[in-house]
């Protein structure tokens, strides 16, 4: 009986097509929850990670109440544009392509992409000769997948919904290399789950493809909100809160050059 009740409750809650009247001070923040160490879901459903801590700090700084909405990466920008949330704090890079559709705050971190390969790989570097004919995995809809498509010549690109899937596949030996943010790869290789693989090389970011680092995304035209976020990021940098969060996850400053 208990189960039926729960079932009915779930049905009732999910069925609500809410005319989400927007409370003025509650900000809905979209994030992915599948991108450690920046944002992940623990098994009991709480969001943790650098993005989450930064988002909470930003909201505290801006004195607004925030709630998180978990959204798959592939649908992140459409969902933002469709008003499912008001801002995206999910390590989204500020690129020209995306700026056509949405606006961004200033960056809150910037790290380069890198390639990881199985430990027994014969690849020496990211030169065209060593990449030729290699199967390379990337998360779809990311700057890294764009980078792989445009800059890594001669590869065969495989796209996955989240980094978790290409990690499974390179571990299984299906991929010759994966391209992803260096800190994400580093975190994974450090853990015992990443014992299959090693870092091959950092890649030189392309300003057009990789953009200017990760920023807070808002809907096109909501400049005021974007500026508020930019100011809050600056404030966090100044008051040491950023460093505190940074040091919790990394042993170097992920903010990158000024």
């Amino acid at each position: 009986m208990h189960f039926m009740k729960k079932l009915a409750l779930t049905a009732a809650t999910v069925l609500m097509v809410s005319g989400a009247a927007q409370a003025a001070d509650k900000l809905r923040i979209g994030t992915e929850g599948a991108y450690p160490p920046f944002n992940t879901l623990t098994k009991d459903g709480t969001l943790v990670g650098f993005d989450i801590d930064i988002a909470n700090a930003l909201c505290a700084e801006m004195k607004v109440e925030c709630e998180f909405v978990v959204q798959d990466w592939d649908g992140m920008i459409p969902a933002l544009m469709a008003n499912k949330f008001d801002a995206v704090i999910a390590s989204m890079s500020i690129t020209e392509e995306r700026l056509k559709k949405i606006d961004f705050s200033e960056k809150y971190y910037n790290t380069p992409p890198a390639l990881a390969v199985p430990k027994d790989s014969d690849m020496k570097d990211a030169s065209a000769a060593s990449l030729k004919g290699k199967l390379v995995g990337a998360q779809s809809s990311t700057t890294h997948s764009e980078y792989a498509e445009k800059k890594l010549e001669g590869i065969e690109l495989k796209l996955y919904p989240t980094p978790d899937e290409f990690k499974l596949d390179i571990e299984a030996g299906r991929l010759d290399a994966v391209i992803e943010d260096v800190t994400v790869l580093g975190e994974w290789l450090k853990s015992d789950k990443g014992s299959c693989c090693k870092m091959l090389t950092l890649l030189t970011p392309d300003p057009v493809i990789n953009g200017q680092g990760a920023g807070v995304a808002v809907r096109k035209g909501e400049t005021e909100l974007a500026n508020k976020f930019s100011a809050a990021i600056k404030a966090l940098r100044a008051n040491g809160k950023y460093k505190e969060i940074n040091d919790k996850y990394f042993d170097f400053d992920v903010y990158g050059g000024e």
Binding site: D74, I77, M81, G137, S140, S141, K158, L159, D169
Partner: peptide, 20 residues
């Protein structure tokens, strides 16, 4: 398309993610 094959749907999803 969900297991990395670029069939018609795979290319469609990729095009959507690139152009939105």
């Amino acid at each position: 398309s969900i297991v990395t094959i670029f069939d018609l749907m795979g290319h469609t999803r990729r095009a959507f993610s690139q152009t939105l």
